[in-house]
């Protein structure tokens, strides 16, 4: 039973990771691509790790998966934030059909 639940979590994770990669190809500019990759790949990878934990149980392997999950949740938004800010500071333009750029208007 617990094996099946773990496999379901791993499948969900694989699906969201795939969507994240597809987003990297399809979306138009740096910022939108960061959106797709951060959200989908964080949850996808966390889901895979959680599935691995469920299958393995409280062993050396499972505990490390849980720990990785926590660190990933804490660090991946920070890196996305740093990349977005760095891109904007170094003058990467928003997509030409973007609606508004308050950050540029405020002179940053």
């Amino acid at each position: 039973m617990i094996n099946t639940i773990g496999l379901v979590f791993i499948s969900i994770g694989l699906f969201f990771d795939f969507i994240g990669c597809l987003g990297l190809v399809r979306l138009p500019d740096v910022y939108n691509r960061l959106q797709a990759s951060t959200k989908c790949i964080t949850l996808g990878t966390c889901s895979i790790l959680f599935g691995a934990f469920l299958i393995q149980g409280v062993t050396a392997f499972g505990i490390k998966a849980l720990l990785c999950m926590m660190f990933l949740l804490l660090t991946s938004p920070v890196s996305a934030h740093a990349l977005a800010r760095g891109a904007h500071k170094s003058g990467v333009k928003l997509w030409e059909r973007s609606v508004v750029d308050k950050y540029g208007e405020d002179g940053n």
Binding site: W95, S98, V99, V100, D101, K102, Y103
Partner: peptide, 10 residues
């Protein structure tokens, strides 16, 4: 159709 209207808001 890629339904997005992106932008940076404050």
């Amino acid at each position: 159709d890629l339904p997005i209207h992106p932008g940076i808001v404050k």
